[in-house]
Design a binder for these strands. Structure first.
Lengths: 106, 106
DNA sequence: CGCTTTGATCGTAGATCGACGATAATCATT
DNA sequence: AATGATTATCGTCGATCTACGATCAAAGCG
């Protein structure tokens, strides 16, 4: 897997509104969530499971078995290469260090 | 276009190794380049033109007509929403401000 | 052991993507 | 006007994506 292929694979995993929404849900939820994701994105259970599989395959999320349900959580470290690549493309505006984030973690 | 759709569209525009490569080429090239991109990515001219069209459609690059050729250049501002979203997902490691970039612009 | 709940997997259908060759369009030059 | 160079567009093919219902697998409970 070349570097460009890795970055493209990460981007592809993000390249769907439902997956963006899922990531936002996971970010906004303190603990772990399972089936609530299905109701929140408004798609069929099998479709949501597929989106979760794609995110899992890219390493962006991971799920642990927690009794009968599964505990999904973000794995932000997987996104570091892509974020770094993008940050490298954007010239920081004269002395500024951080990019303007659309949402700041609490 | 919802916010999630915008982020997904930006990610989709990046979701191909050839397009990552093209962005790196544009970043590494001081001025404008046109047909050299075709040789650099190793795909057919029509295929490269299609990738350029996708990047243009997402607003990530723009091309100006410069005589018989076209001058392509990065438009990093278009990537700010996606970069901000990703930066918001990654918890900055205790006081650190900047993310570790995979490549730093010269 | 049966039953329920939860999530993954299968099979399918339509849409989109990615690549190419061929062709058209645009501009500078002759 | 004709030519050559450069880029865009068209048509097509195979591959992949997305979504769904149906079904299967695993874990807890009575």
């Amino acid at each position: 897997m070349t570097d460009e292929t890795l970055l493209a694979a990460l981007a592809k995993a993000l390249a769907h509104p439902a997956r963006i929404r899922i990531l936002r849900l996971l970010q906004a939820t303190p603990g772990c969530i399972g089936g609530e994701i299905v109701g929140a994105v408004g798609l069929a259970q099998s479709t949501v499971s597929e989106h979760l599989r794609i995110l899992k395959g890219a390493g962006i999320i991971h799920g642990e078995i927690d009794g009968p349900r599964i505990c999904y959580a973000l794995n932000p470290a997987a996104l570091v290469p892509l974020t770094g690549f993008l940050a490298g493309l954007i010239p920081t505006p004269a002395g500024a260090c951080c990019l303007p984030a659309t949402e700041v973690p609490a």
